[in-house]
């Protein structure tokens, strides 16, 4: 365990992250990169971008609260130190996505009201399930909820957003690339550290599996709401891309990004996240629980 945890030290994090892939970035992107003018001038696309970014801020605020709350519950110094790096990663994500809201034209004084207006209520419920475990000081459930379920979801959502932005919005794609690298590290810690703890505490399995089912339900409900409202903005985005001769990356997990409907996009995202959950939970000795399908 000591060898594996040495890969998650502060020193390693400093070398990989601030002195590695974040070097020469400002708010996670190149200093000369900006939101595309076409996006800022198109009210449908601008509002849709604000709505999506608000969900990212809300998710990252939850991750910041969870990772900082888990530091005290961690059973050993190396885990505490890793969670300290994760706390700072999550704070950085809150900061860069908040900055994106400002870049999209949200006024500083309107930040909280904008976040309140656009945050999906199902995402709030998703966060509440996790933060209840953290507040109880339940380290094992907290890390599964945070580093497997929340981070697993974030990782896949960021990958999809990056695939759709890489040509049309290189600034946002660059921002997402750094967060994906962070999330990969967080998921890796969750899988490596929690497997042994689950083996030591098999009695916790049922309760943690129930939590995963509940969080997955709220996640799917969030996806349904977000994609249900995204038809017009997807059409606008494609028109803009076509007008500029930009072809989004052809496929993502089998979905044709240039032509898939909102329903098809929701289905492929949900399937991809749930498949990831199954694999990752299996690695730590937990059985994936199929959530109820949101109405």
């Amino acid at each position: 365990m000591t060898d594996f945890l040495s890969q998650y030290s502060i020193q390693r994090w400093l070398e990989m992250c601030p002195q590695g892939y974040l070097e020469d970035t400002v708010y996670g992107h190149g200093p000369d990169q900006h939101e595309p003018e076409e996006l800022l001038d198109n009210e449908v696309l601008r509002e849709a971008s604000i709505a999506v970014t608000v969900q990212l801020v809300a998710g990252e605020r939850c991750a910041l609260a969870a990772s900082s709350g888990l530091v005290n519950a961690a059973p050993d110094y190396p885990s505490k130190r890793f969670l300290a790096t994760q706390t700072l990663d999550e704070a950085r994500h809150v900061e860069i996505f908040t900055q994106r809201l400002f870049d999209l034209g949200v006024k500083k004084d309107d930040l909280e009201s904008t976040i309140q207006a656009y945050t999906n209520p199902n995402l709030v419920k998703f966060a509440e399930v996790l933060l209840e475990k953290v507040a109880d000081g339940d380290f094992v459930a907290g890390v599964v909820g945070q580093n497997i379920v929340l981070e697993g979801m974030a990782f896949t959502v960021f990958e999809l957003l990056q695939a759709t932005s890489v040509e049309a919005n290189p600034k946002f794609a660059h921002t997402l690339a750094g967060t994906i690298a962070d999330e990969r590290r967080h998921v890796g810690f969750g899988e490596n550290r929690i497997g042994s703890l689950i083996r030591q505490h098999p009695e916790k399995r049922a309760e943690i599996e129930r939590m995963q089912g509940e969080m997955s339900y709220h996640m799917l409900a969030t996806f349904a709401d977000v994609f249900g409202a995204s038809g017009e903005s997807m059409d606008e985005g494609r028109k803009m891309a076509e007008a500029h001769g930009v072809e989004p990356e052809a496929t993502w997990h089998g979905a044709d990004l240039a032509h898939a409907s909102a329903e098809e996009m929701e289905a492929v995202l949900s399937d991809t996240v749930l498949k990831e959950f199954k694999v990752r939970l299996g690695r730590i000795g937990l059985e994936y629980q199929s959530p109820k399908v949101p109405a």
Partner: peptide, 20 residues
Amino acid sequence: NHHAQIFLATQVADEARHLE
């Protein structure tokens, strides 16, 4: 507020580095 929250997150990493 979120500025204080972000500052404290940097402090969390600093303190963990000192311990390390």
